[in-house]
Simulated scan of single mutants.
Amino acid sequence: MQRILQPGEIETLDRIHFPRVRLPQPATLFQERAARLRQLAEGNPIADYLRFAARLVDAQHRRASAAPAPQPLPADIARRASEHGMPLLPASEHLPDGWQAGLRALLADLQGDAAVPAGLAPVSAALAALDDAALDDLARQVLADNIGREDLAAAPLVMAALQVGFAIRAGSLAEKDVPFAEPATVCPVCGSAPVASVLRIGGEAGGHRYLHCAVCASEWHMVRVKCSHCESTRGVRYQGVRDAGTEQAGKGDTAQPVLAETCDQCHTYRKLVNQEKDPFVDPVADDLAAITLDLLMGDTEFARASGNPLLAIEKPLAV
């Protein structure tokens, strides 16, 4: 007699079943990122900045450890997002509760730290003096990547506080809460752009490419033959610092853990970090440390698709 398998049993037999999304684990996320930043600082041309970034991420870890549990997700929000194929909690519309107090605590935590540049003190003081409404306005500008030269130094500090709140909220979700959002190039949780993509190892996610959200640290699957910016499957290639040229997407076998994934259709690039080459890679930390690759890409036709939350760079003037 044949037995009818239940859905859960079918999935255990399906070798191609893997997580559609990987939600953050705030208890370890920032701690591991700080350790990676310190490791990458050794011999790096921007070692001092990486060590400062590590201290900033240390402060994020302390804020995440002290933060209260988020409020449960209202059922109507998940239903509406699923029905309309939209991100669950668009970042600019759903700033985390109490993130302003978290920012002030983070700034106080950095005071007097030798790894923090002295020039950052007046920036921190100015931020701490803003009221909640002004901070919310600035946060929305930072999230929209719409800041002027005067706010460049403040942006990573604001983003650091926001990341804590967004990661805690995203980490409290279940995979079933997260909709299939369109376009697939933005985070289905908060609607933000990815900082980089990561080729994962281990468990069901092993061998699959995920985009890593720059804001809430959620990850969502995207096949490796697609551009992570325009979703084209034509002209996607990988290029690294030591490459003599480019390699066809999916066919390269370079030992480099960080590559630039370029697209001939939209003329952008975004980095791919590969756990198969280094199991300790972190999308945010490794993207930041591989700034030499960005400098080399500056001499090509490809523009960076999105920025790194730990570094704000002035946009070139439109010609």
Results as ranks from 00 to 15, higher is better:
His212Thr: 07
Gly112Ile: 11
Pro7Ala: 09
Leu162Glu: 08
Ala126Arg: 10
Gly240Val: 03
Cys187Trp: 04
Arg80Val: 14
Leu317Pro: 06
Ala91Tyr: 00
Gln25Asn: 12
Leu152Ser: 02
Pro283Gly: 02
Gln248Phe: 09
Glu11Thr: 04
Met1Arg: 15
Leu110Ser: 03
Leu50Ser: 00
Ala108Tyr: 08
His17Ala: 08
Leu5His: 03
His212Ser: 15
Gly191Gln: 14
Asp278Pro: 02
Val284Asp: 00
Asn146His: 15
His221Ala: 12
Gln256Trp: 00
Ala170Gly: 09
His221Arg: 09
Gln248Gly: 09
Ala249Glu: 05
Val123Gln: 02
Gln71Thr: 13
Val281Gly: 07
Met1His: 07
Ile313Gly: 01
Leu56Phe: 07
Ala66His: 06
Pro87Thr: 05
Ala184Asn: 01
Gly112Pro: 12
His94Phe: 12
Asp113His: 13
Ala139Gln: 11
Ala318Asn: 05
Pro179Asn: 05
Leu199Asn: 09
Asp294Gly: 04
Pro316Trp: 10
Leu135Pro: 00
Gly43Pro: 08
Pro68Asp: 13
Tyr49Gly: 14
Phe166Gln: 08
Arg200Lys: 14
Asp132Gly: 08
Ala139Cys: 09
Val164Trp: 00
Val215Arg: 14
Glu261Ser: 12
Leu56Ser: 02
Ile4Asp: 11
Glu231Thr: 10
His229Lys: 08
Leu120His: 11
Arg237Gly: 00
Ala105Asn: 13
Gly307Ile: 07
Leu107Arg: 05
Asp243Thr: 01
Gly250Cys: 06
His61Arg: 14
His212Trp: 14
Leu120Asn: 00
Asp294Ile: 11
Asp253Arg: 11
Ala66Ile: 07
Pro26Trp: 01
Glu150Val: 05
Ala285Met: 02
Val142Ile: 10
Glu314Pro: 00
Thr28Cys: 10
Leu127Met: 14
Leu295Ala: 12
Ala78Thr: 13
Ala59His: 03
Pro309Gln: 05
Leu135Ala: 02
Leu37Asn: 12
Phe30Gly: 04
Arg224Trp: 13
Gln275Cys: 11
Ile16Thr: 14
Val116Arg: 07
Ala101Asn: 14
